[in-house]
Simulated assay, not measured.
Amino acid sequence: MHTSTRSTARSVQVAVRSMVLFTVVLGVLYTLALTGVGQLLIPARANGSIVYDAEGAPAGSSLLGQNFTDAEGEPIAAYFQSRPSAAGDGYDGGASSGSNLGPENEDLTASIQERRMQIAQFNGVDASEIPADALTASASGLDPHISPQYATLQIDRVARERGVSPGEVRDLVQAHTERPDLGAMGMPRVNVLELNLALDEEED
């Protein structure tokens, strides 16, 4: 009986020591080591890839999309607009997801058609010109990029609202068009936040 009790107590002590040891090693030291390496080698990414405006204030993250709308939720014509988001109320990092609606879902089809008409009217273009990424949300709902085609479609509207030439805006779009990773992986893309901040800086 006493032997069994001592054996149980010994097992408990070993288990507690192991838990404390692994908590310190894996929960504290390992985390600190990774944080230190991140701050040393890739500090911008380790800190969330924060993008700052001309005054040095945080404007968002280059990894997360956001809406460019007014207080009523209407798109601001002087800014390039992001692709739609199905994450919460839009680009909600705590509710990242797509719509999970199939291509034949009636609600999805209706929302795409409505969005197509709104975008065509907002930009003064024919509905047939609107690319797919302007109409559908990404799988995460947080994509910060749009296609060069969607950016190009918005150039005339942005230039008109800002009182500048379309050529100036087109040059900024080209300067902020990211090429496929390693030259072949993925598609060219435009970071909307960085492009809009560049537009603001041009006016200052």
Rank of each mutant, 00 (worst) to 15 (best):
V37S: 00
S111R: 15
G124P: 00
I146Q: 01
P144A: 10
P188D: 09
Q39L: 14
V125H: 00
I130V: 12
Y150Q: 10
D143A: 07
A9M: 09
S62V: 00
L101R: 14
R10D: 01
P188I: 03
N47E: 15
N100K: 01
Y52H: 09
G60F: 09
A44C: 01
V125R: 02
L193N: 01
L26S: 00
L195H: 05
A9L: 11
N191K: 02
R17C: 01
Q81A: 13
R179I: 05
A120D: 08
E201V: 01
R45S: 12
T23N: 10
E104V: 14
A159R: 04
S4E: 11
P75V: 15
D171P: 04
S62D: 05
R189K: 14
I130H: 07
T23M: 10
Q149A: 14
D89F: 08
V37Y: 05
R160N: 06
A71L: 01
G186P: 10
E161A: 12
Q174E: 15
Y150S: 05
V37P: 03
L199N: 05
A77N: 00
P144M: 13
S62R: 02
A120K: 06
Q154C: 10
A134V: 02
R189Q: 15
G90D: 02
I119Y: 00
G94Q: 12
R157H: 09
A110L: 03
I76Y: 00
A57I: 04
G183M: 12
D143T: 06
A77G: 04
R17V: 07
N47V: 12
G94V: 14
D204N: 14
L64Q: 00
I112R: 15
H176V: 12
G36T: 15
S99M: 00
Q13C: 03
L197D: 11
Q154F: 12
S99R: 08
T31N: 15
A151G: 15
Q81T: 13
G163N: 02
D53E: 14
R83Y: 10
L108D: 06
R10G: 00
V25I: 13
V25R: 03
N196R: 09
G141Q: 03
A175K: 11
R17S: 06
G94M: 06
N105P: 05
S18I: 10
Q113V: 05
T35L: 09
N67F: 09
L172I: 02
A110T: 06
F80H: 07
A54C: 04
R179W: 02
S18N: 10
L172K: 03
R10C: 02
D89I: 06
A15K: 02
A46P: 01
Q113E: 15
A175S: 13
G73R: 05
H2K: 02
E194K: 04
N100C: 03
F122P: 00
R115T: 11
G27A: 14
M185G: 04
G65N: 11
M187H: 07
N47R: 13
E201D: 10
I50N: 12
